[in-house]
Each structure stands twice: as structure tokens, then as C-alpha cells.
Design a protein around this nucleic acid. Structure first.
Lengths: 226, 226, 226, 226
DNA sequence: CATGAATGAGTTTTCATTCAT
DNA sequence: TATGAATGAAAACTCATTCAT
């Protein structure tokens, strides 16, 4: 029940007065959130155990409640963090400067890579949908984030149509759904997929092929035919 | 708390050996499975409550254990039933007689409709993936069913290539994944989608548009360009 | 943690088929309520421990929740029972047939005796008042019970005035408050009283003197002066 | 969660030794006691929350432990303060100079008013009785205070008997109990009373009527009949 | 087969108190 | 002195499962 060791507080620099701080709330919170993200994403909301989270933490269970109030509060904080991460990344994408076709390919590849690398995120979205998205709806950040993706796509579509590259009759939200579907499914359902076909979709070779296939499918979908 | 009435067993009247049965085990099992399907698909495996299932049933908790052994046993039975249903349906599809392009469109539309109508199935697959597909792997029906879809697609692809309609470099399993992704995602994640964009993907108009879009995307993907 | 023995179920009569029932929900509930009444009345709502109640019971903690839902639910059930008891007794009082002065004396003595003997009840009322009476307000039985006491007093007052024994300007509810005050206080606050004056108000001699004093005070209060 | 401001210590300006003090321990203690009195009297000893007290204070939890040692220590300090207050007041009563009947009426009215105005005191006494008066017994002020009331009453009774106004067979402690009962009960149990009869006993009109009724009842009780 | 009562181990949550800065 | 962070023990509550009738 006793913890063997504490987190070594980050030594900001050489100043001894700063080093070895034992109380570092931000660090503590971050640590809890990290562990909780794993637990919730691998066990679901009701399957997750507060005790299990606390145990893998540098603190005690009490601190979970101190900072997050309840199991659900912690779950919401996890959702918020995970959604915040993807938004941050997305905004750095230099898509507006690219040729529409190239830009769209970049966007698809980014979306593919993000889902591929952030299985926790994907699982948490699945879990949220099992709960009817009731927790995610309370996050202010959620809706605005999605709006920005749509604006990016609208811009791409408009430029692509103007350049004669894309069909004019494509809805941005529909296209987003198409891309999401393709990138999300193979990660979210990789276990049943693997079990059904004896192929692990996260194997590098398959992964690369799927990446290309998906970009290819999306581009063929939007392409204006001669 | 008291149950008002029990299920009256169907009297196959006339045949004396069948009549006058007071209990109908098959009926009881079916009833339990139905309720359990709802509960598991809407709450997940750990979120589901045995008491909640028993309460909405015509029987008592005891019977649930009598027939299915445990909560997990019941969950597996639910998976099995749900998988059995889809397989039955698929085999009636008269695809081998159709023109490849038409056949593929039919297959996509069938897949779309099936997912659209069987949300329980979709949710259960999501749930299974959260549990690493450990329960579904035990089902014999699972692998064989998937094998048969792949054979159907392989046949379509071969005929399409031969007819000069399809590209020759498409893998059947990849194509299946593509189709599944598009049909599955909008159902599985309709809550977060709805919350993010204020659009309910199960609305008839949106549903029809997506159905066409998806078939369109798949056909564009396989089509051999002139 | 194991219970040494179960409650011997009441043997209704000599029929052996009825005897030694192990499952007797009514008995179980009664047993829990009895123990809970002690615990709540001696520790207060927040001071009471569910574990402590369970331990002194013939069942386990789980059953408290099975029958009463929560600690608060159990507390409410205790209140309800305790209030039901006093009402039952009160209705058997043959006051309407007595001479008004004698009837009023009887009522005071009954009230005195009841409070004197039911310290649990008195303590629970004190406790309820600390909680702003929020639990007791939810009991339907509560208001109707009080109405019946008031009717009894109104009847006594009317007959006493008519007989020239009582003053005509006395309000029934005020008189009830007067009687209650005198009977309640010495029980409710017997500890501080005992500590302050070195007298234990529950000592038989003091008890008898107070009983007479209180009846005396009430009768002097209502008496019509010549 | 952050406190906006601390209590500014009163600068008794001019005197350099007093000025420029940054903290005022007495002020801090007083502040804590005030808040604690509210919390304990409204929630009971076990119902009170140390966190809740600290939050409504100008200081932090640490100070609370620094000054009072523990939750119980704080509770005792609250009792002591509340008892100290009442004693101070009572000693100013100029009863020994009044005619016995008038003096007794004054004493009853004072007792009535005091209870009516100091609900915290009344509640705390109720709470103490729930805990068997174990904390109050430790207060030196407690017994001496009660002794002085009894002396006052004894004096009144003696003078009243001598003047032919009062009956000779009345015990001072009994009379004190009678007066206390009448004054205490309507305050201590005003919630159940209000709920039972739809009358709020703290309403000014009812209050005035009760004040007169109680004085009346006490005087009728002691009066020597012609 | 059917049923409500019973159970124990586990899970979440709370709370008075102490520590490091 | 002052303060937010930290803690462990205990409390309330839940749940899958089994038992007696």
C-alpha cells in the first residue's frame, strides 16, 4: 500500500532551490490523467477501476478525487485532454498553401496517421458512442474543434473545384465523414478484423497499403472526371 | 416488483403431446436473449447489469443463470445470436448472377442497409473490440461467415476485371474493409457525429444521401479508368 | 464476519411444515429496523454507521440496501415506524368518554409516559430537527397523525369550556405545544440536565414528581378561575 | 478556490507597538469560531465538515488545527463560547429588586427571548444531548452557570412565598426545568412543529402569543390560590 | 421450472488530519 | 503564520451469483 518512490520533479535548471520539489500538482495531475487514459480506453468507463488507476499512479486514490471529483469527472478530463491533443496538432497542418489535391491527400494522410498512432483516442470515441456521447457533449472544446476541420475541408473543396480538380457537388461534412470512416474503422475494429481475416491491420506492410488505399479512395471520390 | 404475467406458451393446439405445457424453455431463452441484446448493446459488457436484464424479462434471474451459466455466458450467447442472424441474411443475396458493377453496388447497399438497421450488431462489434475481441473469437460462426463474404467479393472482382470494368490490383479483403468502414462508422459513431455537427446521421434524408455516396465511392474506387 | 446464528423463525403453530423457515423477509426487515432505530437514535443520521447496524443484525449489510435502498432510506423507514407506533397507541386512548379535566389529565399522563418510555422516539425527533425536518416531511403518515391529536384536544377543550371547567380562550395547538414541551424536554435533554444539576431526571422518584407537576401545571393553565 | 482577501487586522493606529501587525490571531480565532458555530449547530458534530468550515473561513484548514487541535477541540471551543455568552447576559438581570411575581415573569420572558434569539445555542444543546453531554461536562462554565440560575429562582420563590404570592411546595430546580422546557422546545423542535401544524413558531405573532402563554402558565403554576 | 431472499467480495467515495513549501 | 497538496483509514454502496422454498 505504500508507494515505493515519488516522481522525480523536473529540474528546471541548475538552481538547487528549484530542484527536487516534492509537491508538483501539475505533474501529479498529468500523471493521473495519463494512467487514466490508458485504463479508460482499454476497459471502458464502467470497466475501468479507480483502484487500478490509482495503483499505477505516483499518488493515491485520494488524489484522483481531490483533483477530479469522481470517476466520471476523471473520465471527462481524459476525454478533454485527448480531444485537445488532436486539435492542437490539426491546426499546425499547412494545408491552405498546398495544391488542393495535394492538400487533400495530406489531410487524409494526417488523419490516417493520427488515428493509427492514437489508439486511445479511437477507443475512447468508441466508448463515448456506447454511452450515447453524453460526456463529450459537455465539453466546450468539442464542437469548436470539429468546426475547424470542416472549414479546412470546405476551403480545400472550394479551391479544388475552382481549379477544375474536384467535383462541385460534394458536401464538406459528408467528405469528413468519409475520411473519418476509413481512418477510424481499421483502428477501432482491428481486433475483430484481425480475428476474422487473420490479418493484423496494424502490421507495417498492411498499414502502408491501407494508407495509400484510403488516400486513393478519397481522391478518386472527389476527382472531377474528364 | 411483482411480474404481472408470464409468457403463455404457444399451444400448438390439437396435438395432445405438445399441448398443456406450462413452460416453454425456448420461448424463455429467446425472451432473455432479446432483453440481454438490448442491455449489452446499450451498456457494454461491464456496464450491463444482470438485475436490469432480469427485470425486463418475463422470468427471473435464476433462469438466466440456469440457461446461460453466467453474465459472460449470456453475453456470448447474445453475440452468437446476432452473428447468426447476419449470416442467414447474407446468403440469400443473389449477387453471383448480376453484372459485376451492379453486383458490387448491391453488396454495398446491402451492407449499408444491414448496418443501418442492426445497430445492436454494430454496437456489439464495437464493444467486442473494446474487449480485444476475446469473446467473438470463440464463435465458430464468426470466421466462416467472414470467409463467405470474401469469397463473394473475390468472385465479383474477378468477374469485374474480366469484364474490363474493374481495376485488376484490388485485394478482396481490403475492399471488404473499405466497404465495412464506410457502412460501420456512421452507425457506430453516430452520437459523436451528431453531437459534433448537429446532424443526426440516421435521419432519412441524410441516410439516403450517405447510402448513395458510399456506393459511389466504392465504385469509383474499383472502376478501371479509360 | 460470519454470522454465528440466524433468527429462529417464528413458529406459527405446531405444524412442522411451517416451522424453522430460514427465509422470513418480514422478520429480517423488522430486525434491521429495530437495530437501526437504536443506532440512529443514539448516533444521529450522520453519526450512525451502516456497518455498525449490519453487525448487530442477523443479516448482512447487503440486505439493508436490498430492503431500504440507502442509509437515508433506512433512516426514513425508522422514522416512519417510530411515528406509526405512537399514533397507534394514541388512538386507543379512551378520552372522549371521560370528564374533561380527567380526560386532559389522562392525555398529559399518556404523553408523559410515552415520551418517558420511548427515548428513541424523542431522540429521533431531536435529530430530525437538526436536519430541518426534511426527512419527516416526506412521510405521509406524519401530518395526519398530528391532526388527530389536535382533534382530541379540541374536543376536550370544547367539553371543558361547556362544563365550566376550562377557560374559553385556549388554542388547541398551543395547548398541544405546551404539553409536548413539558413532556419532551426532560427526556430529550436529560443529559445536560443531569450534568447541570446532578439529578438524573429518569430516576423513578423524580420521574413521578415530574409527572404530577406537569399534569398539575397543564390543569392550572386551562382551569377557569372562580 | 483562491481566497480573495485576508482579514485586515485592525490597526489601532498611533501605537507603534500594535501597528503593522500583519496577522491577528484573535481575529482569526474569532472568525473560525463563528463559522464553526454555524456549521456545528446546523449539521451536528458528526454531520459537520472540517472542510466546509475552513472554506467559509478567512483562513485555511491548517489554522483551524493550529488553534483548536482537532474537530472535537473546535466543537468544544464552540460550546464554551456559546455558554460563555449566555452567562454574561444573565448576570445583568436586575431580578432581585423586583416584586416576586414581576421578577418571575421577567425571568421567564428573558429565558424565552434568549432561546428565541439564540437558536445556535439551542441546537447545540440538542446536539450535546445526542452525544450524552460528554463534551459539555468538561466545561467549567457549565455547572457554575446553572447554579447561579437556581439561586436566582430560589430567591424568587422564597420571597414569593413570604409575600403570600407563591405556593410553598415548589422546588427551584423543578421550576427551572418547567421554564426551560417551555422556552426550549418551541425553538429546538420548530421544524417538526412547523411541518406538523403548518405553523412557523418563529413567526412574530405566534412568538408573542407563546411568550405570553408561557409566562402565564408559569405564574399560574406557582400562584398561591386564595 | 420458478421465485424472491440472501450473500460476500469488491468498488466508489468521504473525511479528519498532516506535510512541504 | 500561512497555504495548497497529500494521505490512509474508514465509510457507503454495488454487483454477480447462490440458496431455500
Amino acid at each position: 500500500m505504500k508507494k515505493a518512490s515519488r516522481v522525480a520533479a523536473p529540474e528546471t535548471d541548475g538552481t538547487p532551490s528549484e530542484a527536487r520539489r516534492k509537491y508538483d500538482p501539475e505533474q501529479t495531475k498529468r500523471n493521473i490523467l495519463e494512467v487514466a487514459t490508458q485504463e479508460f480506453s482499454s476497459m471502458g468507463l464502467s470497466g475501468a477501476r479507480v483502484d487500478a488507476i490509482a495503483e499505477r499512479t505516483n499518488t493515491t486514490k485520494r488524489m484522483l478525487y481531490y483533483y477530479f471529483g469522481s470517476k466520471e469527472g476523471l473520465y471527462e478530463a481524459v476525454l478533454e485532454k485527448v480531444y485537445g491533443d488532436i486539435r492542437t496538432l490539426e491546426q499546425d497542418l499547412p494545408i491552405s498553401e498546398l495544391d488542393p489535391t495535394e492538400g487533400l491527400r495530406k489531410l487524409v494522410e494526417f488523419t490516417f496517421d493520427y488515428h493509427d498512432r492514437h489508439r486511445d483516442f479511437v477507443r475512447l470515441v468508441s466508448i463515448e458512442n456506447i454511452h450515447g456521447a453524453k460526456y463529450i457533449e459537455q465539453l466546450k472544446s468539442f464542437k469548436s474543434r470539429n468546426a475547424s476541420v470542416i472549414r479546412t475541408i470546405e476551403d480545400l473543396l472550394a479551391r479544388g473545384v475552382a481549379a477544375g480538380q474536384f467535383r462541385p457537388d460534394i458536401d464538406a461534412i459528408d467528405l469528413h465523414l468519409l475520411i473519418s470512416s476509413l481512418c477510424f474503422h481499421r483502428v477501432a475494429n482491428r481486433y475483430t478484423f484481425g480475428s476474422a481475416f487473420g490479418r493484423d491491420p496494424s502490421h507495417p506492410r498492411l498499414r502502408a497499403r491501407h494508407r495509400e488505399m484510403i488516400a486513393d479512395a478519397v481522391l478518386r471520390f472527389v476527382r472531377k472526371e474528364a
